[in-house]
């Protein structure tokens, strides 16, 4: 019994059908607990006031925006190497989720930046990189939509994903070089001396778990949809031939 068994679309659908209710339930539970805890039961920060509560949305969304692209990269590699259709479809299914997460991170960041930095937007390296990441998501999704042949679309988009990852990384460092930042450093790294305090950290962790679960549940659901849509196209094409 290996992971590759689930590369079979029927097995994949059967498995995900079984785990989806629990998964989405857990996602909703984590999100509700984390956000309610964060919103109602955490103290204000002495410098940021109540705007610190935005962290419970901003940080998980930003994390998932990057992780979604990483997941697409891995799925694209699997498609290129082992040619499992489910993998290519999962990458396709993840893209809109990742793009939405990017928008959430950018929007909450802008709303937070307005009172804190005195501006909605600054050409700070992190902000700029996220904007570029969003453009990559847009291009990736547009390419999927534009190509009619399913296998060709999977091939081309996965190559775009690989090349895009390299260039996204390059842009990240180019942008760092180009402008110094306003954005604070990582607040969750394990080796940093100065992390956010525990009162903020615990609900944040719950929220991150919620976003991860939500992402996985959405990708499962959307991959199922893509599999069904492709099966339907195949049946219709066969009928037209007959």
């Amino acid at each position: 019994m290996s992971l590759w068994e689930y590369a079979n679309p029927v097995r994949f659908i059967r498995l995900t059908d079984r785990v989806l209710p629990a998964l989405s339930g857990a996602a909703v539970l984590c999100l509700v607990v984390g956000l309610v805890w964060g919103f109602f039961f955490t103290p204000d920060d002495y410098r940021q006031g109540s705007t610190v509560k935005i962290i419970y949305l901003h940080v998980p969304a930003a994390l998932m925006a990057i992780n979604a692209w990483l997941m697409m990269l891995v799925a694209s590699l699997i498609w290129i190497v082992r040619r499992h259709h489910v993998s290519a479809l999962a990458a396709r299914a993840a893209a809109p989720v990742g793009a939405t997460m990017t928008v959430i991170a950018l929007a909450t960041g802008a709303i937070w930046g307005q009172p804190m930095w005195g501006t909605w937007w600054a050409w700070d390296p992190r902000l700029t990189s996220f904007l570029i990441l969003f453009l990559f998501y847009l291009g990736y999704m547009a390419l999927w939509e534009a190509i009619e042949n399913d296998d060709a679309a999977a091939d081309l988009t996965s190559i775009l994903c690989l090349v895009g990852s390299v260039f996204a990384l390059l842009s990240r460092y180019a942008v760092n070089f180009w402008n110094q930042g306003l954005h604070q450093g990582a607040s969750l790294s394990l080796d940093a001396e100065e992390n956010v305090a525990d009162v903020f950290w615990l609900p944040l962790l719950v929220c991150i778990a919620g976003f991860v679960l939500l992402f996985v549940a959405l990708v499962f659901l959307r991959t199922q949809t893509e599999i069904r849509a492709r099966r339907m196209r195949a049946i219709l094409a066969r009928e037209r031939m007959a």
Partner: peptide, 20 residues
């Protein structure tokens, strides 16, 4: 909770995110 002078900021951030 008392959101102080940043009530609009916090609420709109939550609103935008939840809507999305």
């Amino acid at each position: 909770p008392d959101l102080g002078k940043y009530a609009v900021t916090v609420l709109s951030a939550y609103g935008v995110s939840l809507v999305l």
